[in-house]
C-alpha cells in the first residue's frame, strides 16, 4: 500500500515538473530519475524481486541491460551522424 502511495506521488510530481518552467533545463534528467524510481519500485516490491530468488533478477536484468546497451549503441550510430536519413530524396 505504501508503495502504491509513493508511486502515485511520483506520477503527480512528474506531471507537476512538466509544467514548471523553472525546471525546464532539469526536466529530462528529473523525469528519467522519477521513471527509474517507479520502475524499480514496481519490479522490486510488486514483482517481489527484492524478496525472490536471485535467478529471476538475473534473467530479467540480463534482458534489460542488453536492451539498454545494444539500443543505445544503435541509436548512437544514427545520431552521431545527424539522425535518421537526413536528406530525404525528392523523387520516389
Amino acid at each position: 500500500m505504501k508503495i502504491a502511495v509513493v508511486l502515485a506521488l511520483i506520477t503527480l510530481a512528474e506531471i507537476a515538473i512538466y509544467y514548471i518552467p523553472a525546471l525546464a533545463s532539469l526536466l529530462i534528467p528529473l523525469l528519467v530519475a522519477f521513471s527509474f524510481a517507479k520502475f524499480m519500485l514496481v519490479i522490486l516490491w510488486f514483482m517481489h524481486l527484492r524478496f525472490d530468488s536471485r535467478i529471476f533478477t538475473r534473467l530479467f536484468a540480463a534482458g534489460l541491460l542488453l536492451t539498454l546497451t545494444v539500443f543505445i549503441l544503435m541509436l548512437l550510430t544514427f545520431f552521431l551522424r545527424g539522425g535518421p536519413a537526413p536528406t530525404p530524396p525528392g523523387i520516389t
Binding site: P84, A85, P86, T87, P88, P89, I91, T92
Partner: peptide, 25 residues
C-alpha cells in the same frame, strides 16, 4: 546518393565498396 532501393558502388581495382542507401549520402 540513394534513389529507389539499396545498391552498392564498386570498382574493385580502384577502391572499396560504398552502399547506396536511399535517403543517405
Amino acid at each position: 546518393e540513394g534513389y529507389d532501393v539499396n545498391h552498392s558502388f564498386w570498382v574493385p581495382r580502384l577502391g572499396g565498396t560504398q552502399d547506396v542507401v536511399p535517403g543517405r549520402t
